[in-house]
Every structure is written in C-alpha cells, then in structure tokens.
Design a protein around this nucleic acid. Structure first.
Lengths: 236, 236
DNA sequence: ACACCGGCTACACACGTGTGTAGCCTCCTA
DNA sequence: TAGGAGGCTACACACGTGTGTAGCCGGTGT
C-alpha cells in the first residue's frame, strides 16, 4: 500500500509523474487558484509548456491529480473489502494514513469542492465499518447508515482540512510526532465518550419531532436576518 | 432570546457595510482568490474604487470581514458566559446556528486558513461546555480539555466546511429543511453513540504507548494507530 | 538513411485583476 | 458664501498568468 509516495524514485520518475506530484504539492500548499503552472513546472524541473503538453489545461491537471488520488483510495478500498483489513479502528483514519503525503492535497481539494470520488469512497469505507458497528449495537439507528457514514467521514476529515487551526488550538503542530500522538489520544478519548447521553439524545429527538411540521427555511446569505430564533435546532 | 445578538445593525445602509456584506457573499461563494473586487463592488452597487477607498486592499477587506465575524462570535460567547445559555447541547452547534447566513463565509475562511479568532472563540465555547461534561464523567480524561475542545470544534465545523460533499453523501441538500432535519437526527445519533468501546479505547491507548518510544515512521504491521499522518515530502 | 512522432523548450499574446491617480459632487462648518 | 473634507467615480497602468504557436532534439521503425 503505501505506494511510491515520496522516497523510492526521486528523479527517475517520468516527467509526467513529476509534474503531477509537483502539482499536488503546489495545490496543497497554495490552493488551486494561487498555484501557478510555471511554479509547478519549476518544481518538476520542466518547462511550463510541458505541463500543458501532458495535461491540456490547469483544470485538467487538477483532475489528473484527483484521479490519481482516486486510484489510490480505490485500491485501498478494495484491499479492505477483500478482508485485508489491517486494523478495525476508524476506517477514515486508515484511509488518511494511507493517503500519507497527499493528505494535504486531499484536504485542500475537498475544501475547494473537488475530489468528490475520494470522499465518496471514504464514505463507503466508513459504511462498511459502520455495518459491523451497527451489528454490535443494542438500539437501532434512526438514520440511514450512509448518512451517518458521510457525516462521520466529514468529521474525520475535519482535522486534516482545518489542520492549521487544530494545530494552533492544540498548541502543537500536527505534523510533528508529538502532535500526531496527542491527536491520536484525543481522538480515542472523544470517540469512546458520547457527547450526548441516551436520555439527552432522546430528548433532542423529541424536540425535533415537535417542530418538524413547521420549519422555517433557513439559509441564504442575506445579511440582515442574522439569528434564527427557534431555540432548539442547532447543530451543523 | 438574543435576537439582537447580531442584529440588523444600526446603519446597514452605509456603503461600507454593503461592501463588506457583498464581500462576504463573494468570498463565500467563490473563495478569496477567485472573488474580484469589481464583482464585489457591483453586488454592493458601488464603484470598484470605493472598495479600495474604504478598505485599503483586498486582503484588508478580507480581514474586515473576519473582524466582523469575530465581533459576532465574541458577543455570542459573552452571552453564553454570562449564564445566558439557551441550551446545553453542543456549543459549537449553537455558534454555528447563530452564525446563520455567514456560515458559508466562515467555512470558506476557515478552510483557507483565516478567521483564526472565530475558530479560537468557538474552541473556548466548546471548552466551557466540556467543563460541565467532564464533571459528569466517571473516568478522567487523559487529554487536556482544550485539545479535546479544539478537535470537537473542528469536527463540528466539518459539516459546514465540507457541506457540498456532505450534501452529496447524504443525498439531500443541507440547505433545505429536509437536509437540515436529517443532519440533526444523524448528529444526535452519532453524538450519543461512541464509535469506540471503552475496551477498544483502552487497547488503542495501550497500542499507542507501546509504540510511543519508537520512531515516527509508520509501521504497516504495527497494531492500529488510530489516526496518523506521517508527513513529509520536501517542502516548507 | 530517412521520415516521423512524441517529449520538450522558448517565446509571445490576450486578458483579468489589483492597485494607483485625478477629479467630481455633496454635505458640513466657520 | 467660501472652503474643505470625505464619499464616490472614471480611467489608466503594471503585472502575473493561462494559453497558444513554432520549433528543436532524440529515439524508433521501415
């Protein structure tokens, strides 16, 4: 699994691959808009024209990067599906691990709205894990599994996407082993302690039912009506 | 309740305010880079030069937007702190709700690395909530409260930041009442059911301890290590 | 040997965009 | 009434950037 990634073949890679890697690096670091073809080309050690030669346009280059990630996540998903599961902890965590050095790119891409397939594949991983968990569960979930898997996936990815803020809040850089370890401990703690008791949950659900019939349409960016005032209903 | 929290604002008619609102709208929709001063000006119904006149530069405009959000979140935080707590569910959820129409801007800003203060303020809200929760908790957390609050905050924000993907995964647009409701149900379910049993958690912690002294490289054969992002490439 | 084709480069163009500058108009005030 | 200041506009400039075009070089097949 942890395929090629970084170490193996530094300069021996084909130019096309070098460009792709450089692009992922630049996209991850500066975002898609701010990243420049020339900068990517320089990092890859090629001319800017070659970038266009291999990938037709900047957008296509991004799509190629996404496709590459997609290939990786698919492979991982297949491995897990074929019972090759190496650990039974949070599957998205596994995916994140396997994503390794491309994690930053993935985070950026997701935040910018692309890399849909990667996200969806992670959701599927999560679903498989949830299937097991649901079996062990006493009560019956009142929400479709895929929905819960989706939200769980998003939450797991939040740390990567908001890495900068999380690092600041934790007081330690997530890129360091210390930060990594601290994060793991915190996640274990959080994941093993529900934030809502079953009673509170039931109450919240009841409250939700109570106001289900009439729900004001929230939303729209109109900046005047700032605070919606129905007391219950919070989340997201 | 605190309808006035973020009230319609004294003179929202002032051009400066209109520009700021338009900027938040554009930044939220297109991102900072892709948003143009001219576009913002047009939405605000003013000339592009006036944007520069009021705010010195595009970056300063963004900072003004962040500052505006900061003011709002501070007010909200003060309200909660002064015992005005309207509900005891997840505080970040409350904050998000109060953020209302600016949620999209906040999500973008956070994903792009800015709006630090808003995030930090949310962490503080979360900390206060955790203080109560910790008191009710049988065992003692092995991770600093602020760390857990930070991660919890990030997770809560994940839905907003990854809204597009979450909507797709859930099969319903989060902006609609249906999506909103479904999300609430799912969150209640997720928050009331730990993903790890205490035994699993203990085991994971033990595994962590076991490989703590070792180096940071990911061992494939190593027992689960919940989340791990080994970094490194050659940048930064 | 020749032609060919793909990898690869150098150069130029068009365009959007942030920013700078000059000036108008309308209050407010002395 | 004059003057000034600030809200506001119109116009122009410099520059970075994506993209287009022409051409070179080296290997490979016939």
């Amino acid at each position: 699994m942890s395929v090629t990634t970084t170490g193996p073949d530094p300069e021996d890679l084909t130019a096309r691959a070098r460009i792709r890697d450089a692009a992922m690096q630049h996209f991850a670091e500066h975002g898609f808009e701010r990243a420049t073809i020339r900068g990517i080309a320089e990092t890859a050690g090629v001319s800017s024209g070659l970038v266009r030669h291999h990938f037709g346009s900047k957008q296509a280059l991004r799509e190629a990067c996404d496709a590459y990630l997609t290939k990786m996540i698919r492979r991982l998903n297949d491995e897990v599906r074929s019972g090759y599961a190496l650990d039974r902890s949070n599957p998205v965590a596994t995916a994140n691990t396997a994503m390794g050095p491309y994690q930053r790119y993935l985070a950026r891409a997701l935040a910018e709205g692309s890399a849909e397939v990667v996200f969806d594949e992670m959701v599927e991983l999560s679903e498989q894990w949830l299937a097991d968990a649901d079996a062990r569960r006493p009560d019956v979930p009142d929400v479709d599994r895929k929905v819960r898997a989706t939200i769980g996936t998003a939450m797991a990815l939040a740390i990567a996407v908001l890495r900068k803020h999380v690092s600041r809040g934790m007081g330690v850089d997530l890129s360091t082993p210390e930060g990594d370890l601290l994060l793991a401990r915190a996640l274990i703690d959080l994941y093993s302690h529900p934030m809502l008791s079953l009673e509170e949950a039931a109450e919240a659900r009841a409250a939700l039912d109570r106001l289900q019939p009439e729900r004001t349409t929230t939303e729209r960016g109109a900046p005047q009506k700032t605070l919606r005032q129905h007391e219950e209903h919070h989340h997201d």
